[in-house]
Each structure stands twice: as structure tokens, then as C-alpha cells.
Design a protein around this nucleic acid. Structure first.
Lengths: 174, 174
DNA sequence: TTAATCGTTTAGAACAATCTAAATATATAA
DNA sequence: TTATATATTTAGATTGTTCTAAACGATTAA
């Protein structure tokens, strides 16, 4: 590969690293993904470690996280016992997966926490009608409604994207 | 305040801290916001530091960040030289602000980085037509299109929320 | 002006995350 | 089975973040 194209690859990898840490993943995860995304053939742990000048162990744990988020796939190369990896290139599929597992989980957790606490406050209000209990209940009500709405928005997004995907798959088959 | 309601407040504050660090803000920021959100009157630095058992300096820098994101407001209490703070309770307004400043900035930065690199790759392709240059160009094209779409989605969201807000303001005035 | 009361900054401590190199575990081929 | 190639785990080093206590600076009241 020409010098210039190698430079371009490195810049893309750097950018991916920045994006990755911005979204709360590790920098290395983004860089590994960028490396694989720009590679026309699957790569081994060893190759990735050398390309990014990091240890094999570091690649190992970060690749495992990428696998967990379905951002890379492990592929088989016949006659070679090394593991090979390639990038998942369908970004919408990645987003759907991340929203489903990460955001969804966080929203429902927050929703149930706040819901429970609001319930406790309501019960308290039945017993004693003080100003601060009423105030707390009002605030928790608004908070719970907001989180429920965010939760719904994410669900709608996932559903829409799923529909789009299924429709696309159908048109391809037909 | 009763013992029970204090316990509830503490749980909400804890939950807010968790949400905050999940979204890439500091835990203390979330806790401070929670404290103010549940307070029926504005609080001083001193009061917040005592409530959360953290240093005044720590409150100072975290409150400054909350102000930066328009998540809290500084309010004046006549005849008192202390600064008082209260929570911004309009969550959609907060989201709009954060998207506008944080996400927007990140998207346009990524978009311009990748755009430039894609342009360089295109120029390279005019000179020499190797397989890896063509491959790189194809990948960068897809990546750029994806980021542009995300950017558009965020813009649409902000615009819609702004419209909703303006409409609401109008109906209130009428 | 001086004393008192705040808010902010800073130096260093405490803590947490990330990385490497080496050890260990696992899988394949001879 | 044994030897070899590979992946994963781990202990400790490194780095980065966040916190506190104290110093500093600014503002107000006397």
C-alpha cells in the first residue's frame, strides 16, 4: 500500500478512537474497529497488535468487547488455527444492537428505580400530608413520565429500524 | 422532613448519579442535580457540600459544569450574598441544549474529518487505480453517508422539539 | 480600612482505568 | 501423548481522573 493511503488509514483510525471514547467505549475499541473496517481481509490478534503497537492481551480484551456489541465478527480461515476478525459494516444494525442492550437496559432500570420510589412517596402521602412529601411526589411524577417517554422513543426507533431491515431483506429475496 | 422521605431523596440522588455517569457526565454532577431537583428551595454551595458530604471545591467545579449545560440556574436571594442554585426542571430543554452543543459538535467534527480523508482518497484514485484505494474509498463513502444521516436525525429532533416548545409558548400566551 | 464571608483555584493524595509482559490455559498437529 | 502455536488471564506498572484541604482572591459590612 502506498505511503499516502497508510496515512489516511491512520487518520481514520484515530478519528474512530475519538468517536469511541466520546460514546463511552474505550479508545482502543474504536481504533480496532477502524482498523478492521478499512481492511479488505480479516485480521489476526497478532496483526492488530502490531498495527496499533499495543499488546496482544490488550487486543484480546477489546476485541471481546467488540464481539459483545456485535461490532466485529470472528471468521474462519481454512487451514489456519489463528482466529480472524472482520468488521460488521452495517452501522444501523450495530446501533440497533447497542440501543437494545445498553440504552434499553439503563432506561428500564432507571424507570423501575424511580417508579418504586414514587410509589413509596405516594404511600407516605396517604399517611401524612406535609408540603415536602407533596413536592417530592410531584417531582418524581414528572421525572418518571420523562424517562417513560425516552424509553418509548428508543423502542419506536428500534422497531422502525427493524421494520426497515425486514422490508429490505424481503425485497432482496423477491 | 421525616426519616422516610430523606431516605427516598437519597435513593433518587444515588440513581441520578448512576444515570449521570452512564451518559458520560460525572457522578457528582448527577447527584447535585438530583439534590436540587428534589429541593423546594434554592441551595448554597455550603448546603450542597454538607448534604453530599463532599468538599466545597468539588461542588464548585461540578456546579459550574451543570451551569454550562443549563441543567441548573443561579438564583438571587435578596439580602444574602451567597450564591443560590436551583434545578432546571424542563428535561426536554436540557436534552435540546446537550444535543445542540455536544452531539452536534461531535458529529460535525467527525463528518469533516472523514469527508476530508475521503476527498484525499478520491484524489489518490485519479492518479493510481489500485484495489486497496478503491476499497478504502468505498468504505469511507459508506461511513460518511452514515454520519451525515445521524447528523440529520439529530437536527430533525432538535427542530421538532424547538417547534413543540414554541407552539407551547404561543398557546400559553393566547 | 479592616474583618468576615464567600467562591475559586491549586497541589498533592486517593482512587480508578488501562496497559504491558509474563504466566497460564487451550487447542491443534505430529 | 508431546510439542507447538495461539488465546486469555493476571499482577503489577502506568496513566488519568477526581477528590480534599488549604491557600488565594474577591466582595461586602462594619
Amino acid at each position: 500500500m502506498s505511503n499516502k493511503i497508510v496515512e489516511i488509514h491512520e487518520s481514520v483510525i484515530e478519528t474512530m478512537g475519538r468517536i469511541s471514547s466520546f460514546w463511552g467505549f474505550s479508545k482502543i475499541m474504536g481504533q480496532l474497529y477502524g482498523l478492521l473496517y478499512l481492511s479488505s481481509k480479516p485480521l489476526t490478534l497478532q496483526e492488530m497488535a502490531e498495527s496499533l503497537s499495543i499488546s496482544k492481551g490488550n487486543v484480546s480484551i477489546n476485541i471481546r468487547n467488540l464481539l459483545r456489541w456485535n461490532m466485529v465478527k470472528r471468521v474462519w480461515v481454512k487451514g489456519d488455527r489463528k482466529d480472524y476478525y472482520e468488521a460488521e459494516t452495517d452501522f444501523w444494525k450495530i446501533i440497533r444492537g447497542v440501543l437494545r442492550e445498553r440504552e434499553k437496559k439503563e432506561f428500564s432500570q432507571a424507570l423501575s428505580s424511580i417508579g418504586k420510589l414514587r410509589q413509596q412517596t405516594k404511600e407516605l402521602k396517604r399517611i401524612s400530608k406535609t408540603a415536602d412529601i407533596a413536592f417530592t411526589e410531584e417531582r418524581l411524577k414528572n421525572l418518571e413520565e420523562f424517562i417513560a417517554n425516552m424509553d418509548k422513543m428508543v423502542s419506536v426507533f428500534i422497531t422502525l429500524e427493524d421494520l426497515k431491515k425486514n422490508f429490505w431483506d424481503l425485497t432482496k429475496k423477491a
